[in-house]
């Protein structure tokens, strides 16, 4: 399993134990293998607390593995990098900055001058359809708009991989559907790979090239389900219904197992 250039992220036998060496130590991930190809849209699906977000933080380089190795474009992941942007469940925009200042925060850390920053801000904000909101503050925007700004901020760094940690979980159903379409547009034009965490089966079916189903804790890959449906996808097509049943089946046994374990502890 050598990492070839067309693999964006390769996880080899990855394990993560939180608070290792203390009495609060617990295993989040165990012997996990996963490849994300360049330009691929992969959804991580699993019950709550199964370690799928942990995997995202490891891929981002914000946490380090306790076993195995993660490679991004052939190089081991040691620390965070702008090419691997993480987008959080809640808006993580800086409330003291305007939208355009937020979007160009990463550029302003370097040597980019005001004109370059403005050009990039206009470019990425028009990609997410928020050019008009450029000089507003985050608290003047709706939840969905804020997440679009967060995506724009990631795009400003020209990422090769977008890591998304349940980014639409806090949004209402209608906004969520719109945001999924929006994300697919952004993904198509940016050529970046997307690694997207969710516990929503419908969301996985709407978005993914491949759905990676996690086991309950400690998490590892239970099954990988490819979704070969053309986009935009009809949620109510026979194929989508079948996939929904298949994924529900896969998930429910894990959820039951997780519940049984929790009850055993009590």
């Amino acid at each position: 399993m050598n990492s070839t250039p067309d693999n964006a992220i390769v996880c080899k036998d990855v394990g993560k134990i939180w608070a290792q060496g203390t009495d609060r130590a617990h295993e989040a991930l165990v012997s996990l293998d996963l490849e994300v190809k360049a330009g691929e849209f992969v959804v991580l699906l699993g019950p709550s607390g199964c370690g799928k977000s942990t995997l995202l933080y490891l891929c981002a380089g914000l946490e380090s593995v306790t076993a195995g190795e993660i490679n991004a474009f052939g190089k081991p992941v040691r620390e965070p990098a702008p090419e691997r942007s993480l987008i959080f469940q809640e808006s993580s925009l800086f409330p003291w900055l305007t939208v355009s200042q937020n979007v160009t925060f990463g550029l302003s850390l370097g040597s980019a001058n005001a004109e370059e920053r403005r050009a990039v801000a206009e470019d990425v904000l028009s990609k997410v359809g928020l050019l008009a909101a450029m000089d507003k503050r985050p608290d003047e925007l709706s939840g969905g708009m804020r997440q679009r700004v967060a995506v724009a901020r990631a795009l400003a760094m020209k990422p090769k991989v977008l890591l998304m940690d349940e980014p639409f979980a806090a949004l209402d159903v209608q906004t969520r559907a719109k945001m999924q379409d929006f994300l697919l547009d952004v993904w198509r034009t940016s050529n970046a790979s997307v690694l997207f965490v969710t516990h929503h089966i419908d969301e996985a079916i709407a978005l993914a090239d491949r759905v990676v189903v996690f086991t309950s804790r400690p998490g590892t890959v239970k099954e990988i389900v490819p979704i070969d449906l053309p986009r935009p996808r009809d949620q109510f097509s026979t194929e989508a219904m079948q996939l929904r049943m298949q994924l529900t089946e896969l998930l429910s046994s894990e959820v039951e197992r997780a519940f049984a374990e929790q009850e055993a502890i009590l």
């Binding site: 990098a81 702008p82 942007s85 993480l86 993580s92 800086f94 990463g106």
Partner: peptide, 15 residues
């Protein structure tokens, strides 16, 4: 301080 703010700064390459 919201840990996400710090994570964003780290990801963006802030010293």
């Amino acid at each position: 301080v919201n840990v996400n703010y710090l994570n964003v700064a780290r990801t963006m390459g802030a010293s």
